[in-house]
Design a protein around this nucleic acid. Sequence first.
DNA 1: CCTACCGATCGGTAGG
DNA 2: CCTACCGATCGGTAGG
Lengths: 215, 215
Amino acid sequence: MAKAKTGNNVRSARSAEIRDAAIDLFDERGYHGTRMEDIATRLGMRAPSLYNHLSSKQELLSEVVIEHLRALLDEHAMAVGSTTDVSEQLRRAMEAHVRHYARFGRESRIANREVQSLEEPDRTTVLDMRTELGLTWARLIERGVEEGRFEVASPQLTAYALLKMSVGVAMWLRPPPVSESELVYTFGEIALRVVGADRERAPAAAPAVAAPAAG
Amino acid sequence: MAKAKTGNNVRSARSAEIRDAAIDLFDERGYHGTRMEDIATRLGMRAPSLYNHLSSKQELLSEVVIEHLRALLDEHAMAVGSTTDVSEQLRRAMEAHVRHYARFGRESRIANREVQSLEEPDRTTVLDMRTELGLTWARLIERGVEEGRFEVASPQLTAYALLKMSVGVAMWLRPPPVSESELVYTFGEIALRVVGADRERAPAAAPAVAAPAAG
DNA sequence: CCTACCGATCGGTAGG
DNA sequence: CCTACCGATCGGTAGG
């Protein structure tokens, strides 16, 4: 009773350390390129001792990926729920994503590169969550079009383009050359341009730059 | 003399088949998730026989990734060199990328996911090529800004956003819901919007849609 | 949390 | 192009 044989549901400090080391290594070397011994060494342990805190290497991966996607979906819902103006919803959704990718670069990269390393049924769960996220974006853009606020060739294609563009922030080779707030703001603006929403307030609150039409 | 011990530079039909099978499997299961035996089985062979046509598994990977990046750089140069109008250069560069990603989805996904599986010095070579591609895009956008044709907050950030957006085409979970030509055209248009170049010919050759400003 | 160790996998070689 | 096989790696277990 006292011994937690599989301590995977007990979120001890040690579990968190193991998880963090695993995230570091999965990001740097990939899932299959990381050995349990590598993770253990980072914490001054031996590989078998890890199994007092988890039940398998695969569990480490699936937890990271699924939590990442759940966070993305949550933050997207919050961003959209924080206002009723569809342009502002889109801007905030993009800002939320970019902020998340900037702050959780390691988890984002793992989630985007290691889907194929997931075993079933987690793999399917993750693919479904990704599909759901894409649909949420597409519906948001569709609504903007219906309200006459956006003008796009294809809401689905546009949703996909915006999503992929934002994920890119996490894929930066070297750290971004700008501050997080600048990153977030710029991508929010780009999103509005992509959906053709910027014309509403064109030469108004724009960040200066006269933008002449020299042919 | 007659026996090609390491037939890696001899581009035989068999080599091409092996390469194609490897690309399929690296894409589906990842580099580390693919065994030489898997590749051989696809061709009705046994794993050791593969070594009559290549020298290592790693060689298969690096060739795919490096060739992919070389093609991207070439096609980008060709697109930019095919006209002098900076807006048109940007559009064609985006179209070339999207077309490439659409046609070489497998290679594109491998190149983007398996950089970490590359050993040195190929890994560095690939990272350098990626950096070069990013710089090429950034310079193109900078020139557009200098000519007063584009208006962006940061050429570098914008270049990165556009690059990542286009790569996304290859990352589609399921095949794209539209034709290749539609895909290519839509992304070209989006690129022009992102750099703020569409205003020049705003309600002109646009694909209909009145775009009212009901706000 | 450790040592000892197993069972399986896998890239690659030997030698034909 | 094959069989036989090596050497190394690695996730996980036993048992303390």
